[in-house]
Design a protein around this nucleic acid. Structure first.
Lengths: 240, 240
DNA sequence: TCAAAAGTGTTGACTTTACACCCATGA
DNA sequence: TCATGGGTGTAAAGTCAACACTTTTGA
């Protein structure tokens, strides 16, 4: 930068850089659900000829007048009717050739939804839940995005009470443990798991029992705090 | 999406969405250095009239033909002459009004450099190292970005051998401990710190001693593995 | 009465923390 | 000889992992 250069106004800067307003930005949502002891991901048939027959994550271009999180919630709402889910930004992917339509940089979010609580508009069979373990290839770089989000969830699941977004309101400790096992891909010791959960103070005993189970029914619990749609507040930041 | 709609080619999609190619994307680098027991951040005087007098992070718009990481390295190289630095993506900021020039979404990276190893082009006094603790306000949302990057470094500093990027090639355990203390903002027990570091197997004893210290000289060490410029390889991902 | 899962504690291994003394050097 | 930091080990506390038996229910 030339020292003698005058300060630019924002307006002149915009004009001088107009050529750069030539990259599109999208968000892609990795929407996880959980059913029958398995993690699932909501995918849609790609509508691009280049990826004909392949499935892809739910995403869309960000509109000029919406911020990133708003765009993610819009996609969720449009595709699932869900409005009040937990959603978190994970990583931004910007390789030059990741999108055949041109330069599209995408911000990946994961979200966690109760797969049974809502009725998806699954009537058009372009939108389906896929078992995580069955997903081999996806359109674009979406498999990498999916894996990145899965890694992030695995890091967070023992730190923050995010899993309850995947479960119905009332659940047993067995169901909770099975969910942890599905996410982490390991088996957990029942006694140690219960001890760990009770230390975290995430759930409350609602004094009800399972019904319709072919064995001794377990107690039912609710999440004590449920991370849901983020508030309009600023991201937490340091007080430095 | 209409079921009957034909598949689009990438080309027709680009045309139909042409209005969306109307958001610029930038990268901002939070460049940390360390000197005299304090963390520092490299800042530049904002060249926007709206932020006249304020300092800002080093950033630039991403060019249509460079990927995000390439853009970050370009900024580092242009501003510091440094080429071989560790750099990591942290978060993407996309609030509607974060930039007065228009819609600019920015991807934040942190990088760690040896503040004394290189000579910055600090001759124009628009570019300076600032003590972290003295930074109160910055242009744009750069204070939030800075804090987010600092949080990330604090999370990672005990997990990954990133700190050595901030130190000269040879360093004593005291210097290393002081650096950890500056990053984490706490005091550490000397014996426990040394034990912990030696367990991590990050450094090697080079059989040299400090000189010119006004007390008993300590041994000097080198980093065993140095995280530097990322390779062209793909991001690590799960083998699922 | 059988099958299935619920519910529940203890022990040993390991990790983390707190803590103090003598040593080497330069001023 | 003094001031400064270098270098080092141990004990107690806390955390984590392994592990088994009795109970309740439905079929």
């Amino acid at each position: 930068m030339d020292k003698l250069q005058h300060l630019k106004t924002a307006e002149t800067e915009k004009i001088s850089h107009i050529d750069y307003f030539n990259i599109a930005i999208s968000v892609d949502c990795v929407i996880f659900g959980y059913d029958k002891k398995e993690l699932k991901v909501l995918l849609i048939k790609s509508d691009l000829e280049e990826f004909s027959g392949l499935w892809s994550l739910l995403g869309d271009l960000v509109r000029p007048n919406e911020d990133l999180e708003t765009a993610s919630y819009r996609i969720l709402k449009e595709r699932t009717g869900l409005d009040d889910v937990y959603l978190e930004q994970v990583y931004t992917f910007g390789s030059l050739n990741r999108h055949p339509s041109g330069r599209v940089i995408t911000v990946a979010y994961y979200s966690l939804v109760d797969i049974n609580h809502h009725q998806l508009k699954l009537t058009n069979n372009e939108l389906h839940w896929h078992k995580l373990n069955d997903i081999k290839h996806l359109a674009f770089d979406h498999k990498v995005i999916l894996n990145t989000c899965l890694e992030r969830i695995r890091e967070q699941v023992l730190e923050k009470p995010i899993v309850f977004n995947l479960l119905p309101e009332k659940f047993s400790l067995r169901e909770l443990q099975e969910l942890f096992q599905a996410i982490l891909g390991v088996n957990l010791d029942r006694r140690n798991f219960r001890k760990r959960i009770s230390l975290k103070d995430w759930i409350i005993d609602i004094d009800e029992m399972e019904t319709d189970v072919p064995h001794r029914p377990g107690k039912l619990y609710k999440a004590k705090v449920q991370l849901r749609k983020k508030q309009a507040k600023k991201r937490a930041h340091l007080s430095v």
